[in-house]
Design a protein around this nucleic acid. Structure first.
Lengths: 146, 146
DNA sequence: TTGACTTCGTTGCAGATGCAACGAATAATC
DNA sequence: GATTATTCGTTGCATCTGCAACGAAGTCAA
C-alpha cells in the first residue's frame, strides 16, 4: 500500500515557482504588445537587441538574447516580411546574414519601448525593496551550469 | 536617421531575466528525469500534486499546478496510458474524472522525489542567503493581476 | 589544389501548445 | 418538467517548438 513517500510541497519548489512567476510576468508584458502590435516574445527580443547593436548575425542574436537559432531565424524572417528589419548578406563572410532595423522598425520601437519601460517601473514598484535582492538571486541562478 | 530611441537594456529587463532564469533552472531539473523516466514537466506536476491530494479532477489539477486544462488533460491521458495514474468516473458528478496515483506511480515518485529534493537543496546552496529574499520577491510578483 | 572539417542559417518533421468548439452532464430559471 | 445556461473533459486545428539534417560558405592541413 502507500509507501514512504517523502513530503514534498510543489508550491515551494523553486523551479516551479520560477516557471509560474516568469509565465505570469511574461503574459502581463505580452498583453501590452501582442495584440496591439502583433509581435511575439521572440520578435520583441530581436527588435530590442537590434536597437542598440546595429548589424547583427542570426547566430549572435541567438546567444545574446537566449533564442534557439531556429527560433531566431524564424523570428527574423517574420520581422523582415513585416518590413521591420532588413536582412543583408555579409560581404566579408557570405555565410552570415546581417540584420538591422528599418526606419519602420525603429518607429515601432519608439512606440513600444516606453510601454516596456513603464512596465518595468510598475514591477519595481510592486517589488518595493525586493528588486535588488531578486536581481542578485537571479544572477546566482544563472552563474553555474545546471 | 536614427531617432530618439530611449536607452534600454534587455539584460536588465525583469521579464526577460525571469524567463531566462526559469528556463535555465527548469532545463537543469528536467535533465534529472526526462531521459531517465521519460516524463515531461506537465506530467511531473500532475504526479506531484496527486501524491498528497488523493483524488483530484482534471480541473482542480489545472488550477492547482498552473496547467492549461487541455495540457492537464493530455498529461493525465499519457500518465494513465503509462499505468502511473488511474482515471475513474466520479459517481457524484459524472462530468468529473477522478485521478489518482497507481502503485506503479507511487513507486516512480519514490524514486523521483529524492532527486527533486536534492535539486532544490543544491539550488538553495547556490543561492546562499538569497533564498528567502527570492521567495519574497516571487510572492510579490504573483500577488497582482498583470 | 584537394579533401576533410567546421560554421552559418534554413528547413523538414514530429511532437507540443493554446484556443475554440464540442458532447455529455449538471444547475438554474421559469 | 421543460428550457436555457453553465461546467467538465476531450479533441480538432493551426501554430509554435526544438532537434537534426542539410546546402552553402569558409577554414585548415597535407
Amino acid at each position: 500500500m502507500s509507501g514512504k513517500l517523502p513530503d514534498f510541497d510543489l508550491s515551494g519548489f523553486l523551479p516551479y515557482r520560477l516557471a509560474v512567476a516568469a509565465q505570469h510576468v511574461s503574459a502581463g508584458l505580452a498583453g501590452l504588445y501582442r495584440n496591439r502590435f502583433g509581435i511575439s516574445v521572440a520578435e520583441w527580443r530581436v527588435l530590442v537587441h537590434l536597437m542598440d547593436s546595429g548589424e547583427v548575425s542570426v547566430r549572435e542574436l541567438g546567444q545574446m538574447v537566449s533564442l534557439e537559432k531556429s527560433k531566431a531565424s524564424r523570428a527574423a524572417t517574420r520581422l523582415a516580411e513585416a518590413g521591420l528589419i532588413e536582412k543583408t548578406e555579409n560581404e566579408a563572410d557570405r555565410r552570415l546574414v546581417s540584420l538591422s532595423l528599418t526606419d519602420q522598425g525603429r518607429a515601432l520601437m519608439a512606440e513600444l519601448l516606453p510601454l516596456a519601460i513603464e512596465f518595468q517601473n510598475q514591477l519595481e514598484a510592486r517589488l518595493a525593496g525586493h528588486m535588488a535582492a531578486l536581481n542578485a538571486a537571479l544572477d546566482r541562478l544563472m552563474e553555474e551550469k545546471p
